[in-house]
């Protein structure tokens, strides 16, 4: 489903060239739930951005459902994102000028689907926000905003979902609820899920945990199915 080959990302800084990722090679299979963990600055979010096609690599390849992102320009990557990928972010990234419903409708509309409204309503119902659909993000709590973001992420029935610290801005209890919801929907839609997290407990619930240290894969462990399901 997702494959990176010898992926390198360097950036120019005032102190010279800084290499954030130093040749990452990994493969994520369809339906897998993968957690990327590591200390701050280890390159987790950069890796997520590259795998999701949000940024271009310095060298190496990223293959998303057999599409080589490094050979695509931003326009093509955007179209592919719209087709294959969903996102959940730490800071929710809802459009403040749209209601909850409109936020969920947006990716469906962008795909040219006429049924956007109905589908979005169903999803909001699924995440328990049917009563709040007409509210704007600033009228919702953090947990509610993240639930809207999750609904949006699943709105286009994306095959791959990328989540960047999805509980990072939430308290423990709310974070837990949001994760339950994310996993539930993931199962329902049979989505491949890649998430970046600091949360050890969350990581343990995933099929696989990849630990990055200074831009390199330090560990790549697979959890038992029981662990990930029961946790």
């Amino acid at each position: 489903m997702i494959e990176t080959r010898n992926l390198v990302k360097s950036v120019d800084t005032s102190e010279g060239l800084l290499t954030i990722l130093k040749g990452i090679t990994l493969k994520v299979n369809e339906g897998e739930i993968v957690a990327i963990v590591g200390a701050s600055g280890s390159g987790k979010s950069t890796l997520l951005g590259l795998m999701a096609g949000l940024d271009g690599a310095t060298s190496g390849d990223v293959l998303l459902d057999d599409n080589n992102l490094t050979e695509m320009d931003e326009e093509q990557r955007a179209m592919l994102r719209g087709q294959l990928v969903g996102f959940v972010f730490q800071s929710f990234q809802l459009l403040p000028s749209l209601t909850a419903l409109e936020n969920v409708m947006l990716p469906i509309e962008l795909k040219g689907d006429d049924q956007a409204r109905d589908k979005a309503k169903q999803l909001l119902q699924r995440v328990g926000l049917e009563e709040r659909w007409h509210h704007y993000p600033n009228q919702l709590s953090g947990g509610e905003q993240q639930r809207v973001a999750i609904a949006r992420a699943f709105a286009t029935q994306a095959q791959i979902l990328f989540a960047d610290e999805p509980t990072g801005n939430l308290d423990t209890a709310t974070g837990k609820k949001v994760i339950e919801l994310l996993f539930e929907l993931n199962r329902e839609f049979s989505t491949t899920l890649v998430l970046v997290t600091h949360d050890e407990r969350l990581a343990q619930r995933c099929n696989r945990v990849i630990k990055l240290v200074a831009g390199e894969i330090a560990e790549d462990t697979t959890n038992t199915v029981e662990e990930s399901v029961s946790a």
Partner: peptide, 8 residues
């Protein structure tokens, strides 16, 4: 955000 959602 629009671009993330697939907007070209």
């Amino acid at each position: 955000i629009l671009k993330t959602l697939g907007c070209t």
